[in-house]
């Protein structure tokens, strides 16, 4: 479904050039859920943004569904295959657009017909009733906003969802609801996920395999089971796992 090979992403120009991602390679099979973990600044979100076409300073090869993409240009077929959900539901929705307007726009851009019925169905899919259709973002809680953001991504009927820390701005109780929703949607629509998170427990819960990143490099790719066993091959991975199991008084 997705192949990333020797991906380099940089920002700025020499001598201030920052290499955010260095020679990253991984492949995600159709229907798989793949996680990217690492500390802030490790380049995990940058990879998603490069795939989605939000960054043009990259080299290497990105293939979606067997088709290579270039620079920042993506055709409409790409956006019908790939959609992205962002971290902060407070920032990713237009404050003066109602839920109806947000979904309407997404559907119109995809050239969908029967928009009225589709909006109703999208809202039901993400567990929001009809009553939410004409609300504005400030009338919604954080979890409800993230549901709207997910509905907007689903409007294009994509097969690959890029999830950039979809629950880290939410309370744990709401996080559980959103993670369950994402798991249901994946089963229902046969979606492929690439999920970025700094929370190892969330990734282990959601993903089959994951890549551990540090300083822009992928250190290793491991299964969620190996993660649960703490069986990292690199020291860094083992330290990261130990640190995430909690604080122990020294």
């Amino acid at each position: 479904m997705l192949t990333v090979k020797d991906l380099n992403v940089w920002f700025g120009f020499p001598p201030d050039r920052v290499d955010a991602v260095k020679a990253a390679s991984f492949a995600v099979a159709p229907g798989e859920s793949f996680g990217l973990v690492g500390e802030s600044g490790s380049g995990k979100s940058t990879i998603l943004r490069a795939i989605a076409g939000l960054i043009d300073t990259w080299s290497g090869r990105i293939e979606v569904d067997g088709k290579a993409v270039a620079g920042r240009t993506r055709d409409r077929a790409f956006y019908r295959t790939v959609q992205m959900v962002f971290q902060d539901p407070y920032a990713s929705l237009h404050p003066r657009h109602s839920v109806d307007a947000v979904l309407n726009e997404a559907l119109t851009l995809q050239g969908m017909d029967d928009i009225d019925a589709r909006i109703t169905r999208l809202l039901e899919d993400v567990g929001l009733g009809r009553g939410f259709r004409f609300r504005y973002p400030h009338q919604l809680s954080g979890g409800q906003r993230q549901r709207v953001a997910i509905a907007r991504a689903l409007a294009a009927e994509p097969r690959l969802l890029l999830l950039d820390e979809p629950t880290s701005a939410l309370d744990v109780s709401v996080q559980a609801e959103i993670l369950n929703l994402l798991a249901d949607l994946r089963a229902e629509h046969k979606l492929t996920y690439v999920m970025v998170s700094h929370d190892l427990a969330v990734v282990a819960h959601m993903c089959d395999r994951l890549a551990v990143m540090q300083h822009g490099r992928i250190l290793e790719v491991m299964t969620a089971d190996a993660l649960r066993r703490g069986a990292g091959q690199q020291d860094y991975t083992r330290n990261l796992i130990a640190a995430s199991t909690g604080y122990s008084r020294s």
Partner: peptide, 20 residues
């Protein structure tokens, strides 16, 4: 109890997270 249960855990995999 609900808050504690809704957290995914590395050492205890579950299929679905209990919702508060």
């Amino acid at each position: 109890q609900g808050l504690l249960n809704s957290l995914p855990r590395l050492d205890a995999p579950v299929d679905r997270l209990p919702v508060l």
